[in-house]
Design a protein around this nucleic acid. Structure first.
Lengths: 209, 209, 209, 209
DNA sequence: AATGAATGAGGATTCATTCAT
DNA sequence: AATGAATGAATCCTCATTCAT
């Protein structure tokens, strides 16, 4: 009784279990804090089996980042039909991002930890994170450009950078102090600020509000 | 002969050397990544001497946070005389914070790493960081209230929270990509956005810019 | 299309590939240093396939010794027709051995490593090596006896032992320092020394050279 | 009762115990076969203590080589007064070397194992061994030159190389088969062969014995 | 004939910490 | 005020081997 000692090997399933365990732990403790032994304990597979599926710890963490980025992307239900005024659509998007960050925070949490670290041999996970986040930033810039065709490229870049960076900060605040922070409300404010700023960048003569 | 001082038994000097080494390493590698052996190697004192000055690793990291917070505070030359319009003063403050973050980034860098981590036994350094940063947030709220006396408490809180959080995000962006990010410029934008938002919160009827 | 052969199930070919990889690695790193994983990586077959062809690591190493002994034997073209004076023929044989050691050193290199080791459970490869080398020593003794019929058995044994042992030493010197060591020249000297010694053993009264 | 758990720290003594254990094990099993755990078990100190005294395994093995070379040198009582004919003195020296190899075989045994290996990253122990052995070879050359002043340099080099290399081979034979091999007798033969060869090299016209 | 997956034991090394001096 | 030495637990990772397919 209990568990049959030897199930039939199923690589894909095992890989998933390892990644599941690793996201949790890495999301809590960062790169160094994620010990293979802890992952092994949480997923039930021996440490040596982890090394069958991943070359080394670095490889595992990079895979974690990749997979949780994908999960985050698909968790974020960007409104398919583009309805409403530009302002409304910016607000919809902000709300969508806020919700996705509340629901699937692993990607950003681990990624930001890696991003802040500066070790001599940069973990591959950090590189991967910075890359996918560059992609995200570019998407934001494209959407901004589509919504406000009058903006010049430099302004678009500035806004996109600000938008993503500030979102990071709001996320951290929320992670740090779940209860006191109303992430949805802050993202609403964020969207409004951004939109106002965009308008002003479009027409610098426009009077301050 | 040679160097007259510090020959034997200069506790203060040793403590300083240890902390100097620890800031660097902890700023690079975070809590787990900071090994006593590495600190010992970098400061030239044996590991056991570190334990003479600090109870344990936790104590050391907490001291690092405290000291680098102080260093950051004094590096930030907040304009003593409050001159100019409220808008100008907000912009001055933002510039001052931006500059301090470029010059003395250890405090925030290490602090944010600690803030993002979620380990069972919370390191004391994390608590210390969150406390000092709460103090900072309250100061921002006070200054905001002084500048814009018409704002209600909830709005002040929201703005202060947003201000600090977004600043964190901008800082991370700058740390992540020194070259591509113009931190000063982003903080200028940040100040403007905040001020506009404050005005609007003061008088919701005010038309969009 | 492509390569017609070896597509599926060619046991002999696979076995050869494994042994090829194993000689190289074992010749470089010795018994302990030869990991199944390394052999697998070098020959391109999964580790489990190695266990299909060989019972265990011990078996593999023993097979390596056997095969490289055979390769060495056939690489050594012992002059078929016995022509010339005894002295000339000793010199021919020495040259032939020297050349074979330069060309196919795996056998001796790995064998000597095994011979030097003294582990509790003697690897079968070591036994195999010592056996084949005993055979070789006996052959040397026989040839010596044939060339110099006047020598008594004890002298023949002494000479054969010395001949083989010194050859080992010369080989190691050559392996250790390819460039500075003229193996062919040293083997010429070796042959001459041996022949002189044999003559003197035949007739102890013979004056020193 | 039993052993007092905490003796007063004595670094030198501990270092000695570690080296004592390491020589034995490395002499039996070679570089790869020498596990830190095994050394720890044999010397009674925990593995981590070994790392206080030696940087890593490589460092330990190198120290083993160095120390056992010294031990071997002092175990070899080279006859102080140079008495007797050159031939007699060569024979005395050979006997002395033979005896030292029987008594303190660790140096050569481990050294030859290392010398035969060819791993990508050469262990420092191997380098050390090859260096001290170069020193030994040069000493042999000097003594030869002193004994036989008529020999040219090339001949001296050839003889010294041969002398040392063949000695290695004889040693291995003895290690491999303690019982069947009369190392002292073989070294007598070795000395005689060398001396005869030297004479002949001095005067190539000299008739074969 | 071959292999993907798994596994427990053991590899070297570093960890934070202690203790006698 | 400081430190050389020690230490058990934990680190990442590789080992030889097995087994179901």
């Amino acid at each position: 009784m209990g568990e049959p000692r030897k199930q039939r090997a199923n690589g894909i399933e095992s890989r998933r279990r390892i990644l599941d365990a690793a996201v949790e732990i890495a999301g809590e403790r960062g790169y160094e804090g994620t010990s293979i032994a802890a992952v092994s304990a949480r997923c039930g597979l021996p440490a040596s089996s982890i090394y069958w599926h991943f070359k080394d710890k670095d490889d595992l963490i990079a895979a974690v980042i990749e997979r949780s980025f994908d999960a985050w992307l698909s968790a974020m239900d960007l409104p398919g039909e583009h309805s409403g005024t530009p302002r409304e659509r910016v607000e919809q998007m902000a709300a969508s991002v806020a919700k996705s960050l509340v629901d699937a925070p692993d990607f950003l949490r681990l990624g930001l930890m890696l991003a802040l670290e500066r070790r001599p041999e940069e973990p591959r996970g950090r590189t991967v994170f910075l890359q996918v986040r560059q992609v995200a930033r570019r998407r934001v810039a494209e959407i901004t450009a589509a919504l406000l065709p009058d903006l010049d490229d430099a302004s678009i870049d500035l806004l996109a950078t600000y938008a993503v960076a500030a979102a990071d900060g709001l996320f951290i605040a929320h992670q740090t102090d779940h209860d006191a922070i109303d992430l949805i409300g802050l993202f609403e404010l964020h969207a409004r600020l951004l939109f106002d700023a965009a308008l002003r960048l479009t027409d610098p003569e426009r009077p301050h509000p």
